[in-house]
């Protein structure tokens, strides 16, 4: 058989076939869910946060290959990020790290970014104190 061109690049396929960090963290410090189960993809993200830093992340997703790969890549990228960095995190970073997604599938990376923001909101609700100190470095 002729070698067929692939729908997704090797990095996306790798994260789709071997997704990293699948599951739910027990007693997470933050939990965020995004998507609309009634029509599209849904993702749940759980985070372990210590001293203002994300030290672990797990996900579950109902979605297409791009959604699975984006979620997997997002959890990889988030580990080690400070809360401040995580707040600035966008889907663009996921797409770049994946080496690109087909135009119609960019939306799938937005899902992961939205789940993260929901998780950070959840964290803020649980830890109202950590929200304010954004001291300027001097």
């Amino acid at each position: 058989m002729k070698t067929a061109p692939a729908l997704y690049n090797p990095t996306v396929l790798d994260h789709f076939l071997n997704p990293r960090n699948v599951g739910d963290l027990p007693h997470p410090d933050a939990l965020g869910q995004a998507g609309e189960p009634a029509c599209g993809d849904t993702m749940r993200l759980t985070l372990r946060i210590q001293r203002g830093k994300i030290i672990d992340a797990r996900f579950r997703v109902f979605g297409c290959a791009a959604a699975i790969a984006s979620s997997s890549m997002a959890t990889q990228l988030l580990k080690g990020k400070t809360l401040a960095q995580a707040r600035r995190f966008t889907n663009r970073q996921i797409v770049t790290a994946l080496g690109g997604l087909p135009p119609a599938k960019i939306q799938c990376s937005v899902l992961a970014a939205q789940a993260l923001q929901a998780a950070l909101q959840d964290y803020d609700t649980r830890h109202p104190a950590t929200r304010t100190p954004r001291r300027s470095k001097s």
């Binding site: 076939l17 297409c64 290959a65 959604a67």
Partner: peptide, 28 residues
């Protein structure tokens, strides 16, 4: 399970199927 993800995994195992609901070019 989502249709396109099923389709791709089937394709990786040599099974060619279709999905009525998902398509890379048509989005969700």
């Amino acid at each position: 399970t989502e249709g396109e993800a099923q389709l791709l995994l089937c394709d990786m195992r040599g099974i060619a199927v279709a999905s009525g609901s998902s398509c890379v070019t048509r989005s969700k």
